[in-house]
Design a protein around this nucleic acid. Structure first.
Length: 287
DNA sequence: CGGGACTCCTGCCAGC
DNA sequence: TGCTGGCAGGAGTCCC
């Protein structure tokens, strides 16, 4: 499930493929993903040159030479595959040209194909279709319905224990839910929120507003450290997430509590449901 | 307004 | 064995 580190990894993988290239054509295999594609989506992308890529929360923003921006959210299962007809043998190109293979552009869940001016094809695959693509002008970004109201980046300068204290003040919602609230912190998902809570030693059901400042300091530190470490390991590969070059991320080997039976100290891990999401926690280590 | 439930979607797997 | 129901979850929307 792509969260901040996975989205960052995908963006970094796509950068060298896309930046400086022009989009020769866009093939849409269906009318939309979570939302319909915007009017004239493919036609408006055609001929545009990619200037740069950036990430905001779990969104990838592809900046184009006409001031517009392709916005992509990977949802639960979105992934990009790069097909290069000129790639040498043993490159991923050969494997993925198998008929119907994931990302080949002909599979049932290959929804969008970007053809670049150098012949490279970038295929967007998303079997659950929770992903999003939209096209907006850079002047519209601040007011865009999906981007406005998004909170601070955990790796950014605005994020701190004081920030958490201010935003969690008088909040009765369980801490786990507060960590997942994109209007407060941008980019955390279920896996990282679960891991951050364990490493912080805080029970996931603690009301967010009742956490002392020292504990918020620990929480803030882990909220920075965990995604930072995960980015360094190219994200977490649980089931659906793959890097652009199809190598798996490495952070799943460092998960301490998510989908574990026992915590690193040997205590039995409990699983509960919060807001429809599974939370794993250690009743001994997390108070 | 805050918080929780519901919804979208498909693949997978436990259980009958 | 084969079907079915439940589960997985990001995030918008709806309701109390």
């Amino acid at each position: 499930m792509p969260e901040l580190p996975e989205v960052e990894t995908v963006m970094r993988g796509l950068g060298p493929i896309l930046v400086g290239r022009s989009i020769a054509a866009v093939e849409l295999r269906r009318a939309g993903l979570r939302f319909p594609f915007p009017a004239g989506f493919a036609a408006r992308l055609k001929g545009r040159r990619v200037v740069s890529l950036q990430r905001r929360a779990k969104y990838i923003l592809v900046n184009l030479d006409d001031g517009h921006c392709l916005l992509v959210h990977l949802g639960m299962t979105g992934r990009f595959t790069v097909l290069d007809e000129n790639a040498p043998p043993n490159n991923l190109g050969e494997f993925y040209y198998e008929q119907g293979a994931v990302g080949a552009g002909s599979g049932p869940h290959d929804h969008v194909v970007f053809l670049l001016d150098n012949g490279v094809r970038v295929v967007y695959t998303d079997h659950r279709r929770f992903g999003v693509m939209d096209l907006l002008h850079e002047n519209e970004m601040a007011g865009h319905k999906l981007l406005k109201g998004i909170g601070v980046e955990p790796l950014g300068n605005e994020f701190s224990a004081d920030f958490l204290a201010a935003r969690f003040r008088k909040k009765s919602a369980p801490l786990k839910a507060a960590l997942l609230d994109q209007r407060i912190i941008a980019g955390l998902g279920n896996i990282y929120a679960t891991e951050i809570l364990y490493r912080s030693g805080i029970h996931p059901e603690t009301p967010a507003g009742e956490i002392s400042l020292p504990r918020l300091s620990k929480l803030a530190a882990e909220t920075k450290a965990v995604p930072k470490q995960a980015i360094a390991m190219n994200g977490t590969s649980i089931s659906d997430f793959r890097r652009v070059d199809d190598k798996s991320g490495g952070f799943q080997n460092f998960l301490q509590i998510y989908q574990k039976d026992t915590c690193p100290k040997g205590h039995e891990v409990k699983k509960i449901k919060q807001g429809g999401r599974g939370t794993f926690f250690c009743p001994v280590c997390q108070k």
